[in-house]
């Protein structure tokens, strides 16, 4: 309980700091203008989303190895939160691409990889929903969690070579990362910390909820009513 409360407090404090820095401390980008500030949500969302999928992979291996239900609960929570972060990353990315590049979508290697990742872990959640409940769903999901994560670098390679063959017609200034000024770097760092703390808090809450769900399922099974 105390861990969850302190994580909530930490992420709230960091988030407020990050928000204040994004709007009142970081300078406006000379080339990209105000829309560059989306960077401070978009990139942390992407990084933490990727971290979430790494957690899924590690816990999947742990689950198949040790068979501990707790590992599986953590993997489940990480997959769901990872899909949430990746969805928001794709949305904020589109909202940044339009002002920066003049298009909503560009098949850059990062975007292509993220989109496929989103589909992969959406499929992971579907598999958990449709598989026979209990231990079978956990085993299937763990196998997919491992296969999916190993697939990521291969997808990235394919997306990069593919992009070389089919260059996008991008209008306006290309966001080939202009070097960040020190205040921007600091703001970016605080944003990453804030999103990581938020992720940690959501993880504890979602894992706890998952534990409750399983407990209720078992009790219902024993006492048919209610």
């Amino acid at each position: 309980m105390t861990l969850r409360m302190s994580l909530l407090g930490l992420s709230a404090a960091l988030m407020l700091t990050a928000l204040a820095m994004v709007f009142f401390y970081a300078p406006t980008d000379i080339v990209l203008g105000v829309s560059q500030r989306i960077f401070y949500v978009h990139v942390p969302l992407a990084l933490v989303g990727f971290l979430a999928f790494a957690v899924v992979a590690v816990c999947s291996i742990g689950y198949l190895w040790k068979g501990s239900e707790r590992m599986d609960n953590v993997a489940y929570a990480a997959a769901e939160i990872g899909v949430l972060f990746t969805s928001l990353m794709l949305i904020t990315g589109m909202l940044w691409a339009k002002p920066a590049w003049g298009v909503w979508w560009s098949w850059s290697p990062q975007l292509t990889t993220s989109l496929i990742l989103w589909f992969l872990y959406a499929a992971y959640l579907m598999l958990r929903a449709y598989a026979p409940p209990g231990e079978t769903a956990a085993r299937y999901a763990a196998v997919l969690g491992i296969i999916g994560f190993i697939d990521v670098p291969i997808v990235y390679m394919a997306a990069r070579w593919w992009r070389d063959l089919h260059p996008n017609k991008v209008l306006g200034p290309l966001a080939e990362e202009s070097a960040l000024e020190p205040p921007m770097q600091l703001t970016f760092l605080v944003s990453i910390l804030a999103f990581t703390a938020l992720f940690a808090w959501l993880m504890t809450e979602r894992t706890e909820l998952r534990r409750q769900e399983i407990q209720v399922e078992r009790m219902r099974y024993i006492y048919g009513e209610a």
Binding site: F119, L120, A123, M126, L127, Y130, A131, P132, T136, Y140
Partner: peptide, 27 residues
Amino acid sequence: AMAVNTRAREILLPVLFFPVAAPVIIA
């Protein structure tokens, strides 16, 4: 082998398969 034991197996197999096989399809 997984999808055959699930509800909605006809749709679940492509949903699982396509994202993972995407690099092979592109290549």
